[in-house]
Design a protein around this nucleic acid. Structure first.
Lengths: 269, 269
DNA sequence: TTGCTCCTCACGTCACGTGAGGTGGC
DNA sequence: TTGCTCCTCACGTCACGTGAGGTGGC
């Protein structure tokens, strides 16, 4: 048995607002079973209630409408549950990122300024196994992790030993335009057999102002700010990407406080 | 010492995008120290870097711009930290709500339909101490908790014993229009000395279709859906608010699974 | 002269909410 | 006839991002 319901009645039963129901009709997410051709009145049936409720739940968890559509169109239960599980996974990682950001802000508000040492150094060109891509600033974290994993895996299978600390190059446009060229690399003395996205590149020589960042890279923006300020105030600024050198990483210690990254800003002679 | 910086240099140092900096200028959140009157070029100084970084952190945590403005305008450190702490508090509660929603969805996907019993009942008018307000659907949870707390506190100080289960009335417009009249109440036999928002009201008599919801009210939408479907399919629908009667509440048990709420849908004779 | 950096509009985004103004059935 | 429910536009939201088209200094 199913029953014709006006949009108001269907709204009261499903807890979706009338405005939302009209919008879902417009974008083809939830079609009324019939529409009166003269008045334009929409009619729903009680059999649509569970679908409406699933939509409401997914929207409450901020699943984008195209994805909700994919869930509703899923051909079997397994496919549907996979899509939902993937979204819940993403929600969980956003949750933990937010939690980290809260922690970092709390820390930032309580920490007093630490001493801040800058050294100037000229680095030579170096051969490296590297992955380069044009990346959006929002994706940079995930891209960075994936790329480093891929390079490490390649060095492991080819039994190649790094000849120095791993590092990254980040074009200034990444910050000014939210998108730009980034490179992560591991120095090696002799070329490795390549696969996937990994290429052999020469990291160009540069003159750099360098300071050491302590702790998670999530708080590196403060160190960038202090170093950039130093470079600007000493009229040293040159064009070129900033470099990060990973001296003590998460692979070396479980204690965030012991992490060490050199932040290197390009300067002129 | 401070140094004039172009918008691009300031962006690279602060990690705020050029577009964001222009927008913050437009809305008066972060003023450049000078603007060239002929070219319109904006200039910043290195002393603005810490402010820019605080803005970036707060925006990353989705603090609305008017609030960020209030933080920057705070006259002392204590006031500033209070504003930030309040926002972090809100973030934490959003986090736990999202976590609850994830849990509920997982549960919804795994639970098989339970048996579903509906009874029809005519309830008499009853005297009650109540709080009534027009509430938005988004605020209803917090409003519900606050109001119940206030009524309970009043009954405690006046040593009044409830004459029945506490309950709530919810106009259908709450769901159809996202805003509507809601009442929470505790039945009492004799009027109490009133204070605050609490009034004595007569809960009107009604004919109701009733079913019992088990577990947290976060999942009550499914029970609403099932009950609304039942009422629609039996052509019983009448106008009037839905009623909830809180039979076993969080005050009675710590086990969510034991919670019991009667959901009551208005029907005609 | 050529790039480069910066500028100002105007428009798009995402999922609806907010009116305004109007219609059809009890 | 009066309310009530429903309808369709058109516009607003929030914090920028995305071009288009143009200018000034090296």
């Amino acid at each position: 048995m199913s029953t014709h319901l006006s949009i108001g009645d269907f709204s009261a039963i499903s807890h979706l607002s009338v405005k939302a129901l009209r919008y879902y009709h417009e974008v083809g997410l939830l079609q009324p079973v019939s529409v009166d051709s003269s008045s334009g009145y929409r009619f729903y049936t009680t059999t649509q209630v569970p679908t409406a409720q699933l939509i409401r739940r997914l929207r409450k968890l901020e699943m984008p409408i195209p994805e909700v559509r994919a869930v509703l169109a899923a051909s079997d239960r397994w496919q549907r549950d996979t899509l939902i599980a993937a979204h819940l996974q993403r929600m969980e990682s956003i949750l933990s990122e937010t939690r980290a950001a809260v922690r970092e802000l709390r820390q930032m508000l309580t920490t007093t300024e630490t001493e801040f040492l800058v050294s100037l150094r000229t680095v030579q060109a170096v051969q490296a196994a590297a992955i380069t891509a044009t990346v959006g600033i929002g994706d940079i974290g995930a891209w960075w992790e994936d790329s480093r994993r891929e390079i490490r895996a390649l060095l492991r299978v080819t039994q190649t030993v790094p000849s120095g600390f791993s590092g990254g190059l980040f074009a200034q446009e990444l910050f000014t335009d939210e998108i730009g060229v980034a490179t992560v690399f591991v120095p090696v003395v002799s070329p490795v057999a390549l696969s996937g996205r990994v290429k052999m590149v020469e990291i160009p020589p540069a003159r750099l102002a360098i300071t050491v960042h302590r702790g998670s890279l999530g708080t590196a923006d403060r160190t960038y700010g202090a170093l950039g300020t130093y470079v600007a105030e000493h009229s040293l600024a040159a064009t070129g990407p900033v470099t990060e050198t990973y001296v003590v990483t998460g692979d070396d210690t479980a204690d965030e406080g012991r992490l060490r990254t050199e932040i290197c800003w390009p300067v002129h002679h």
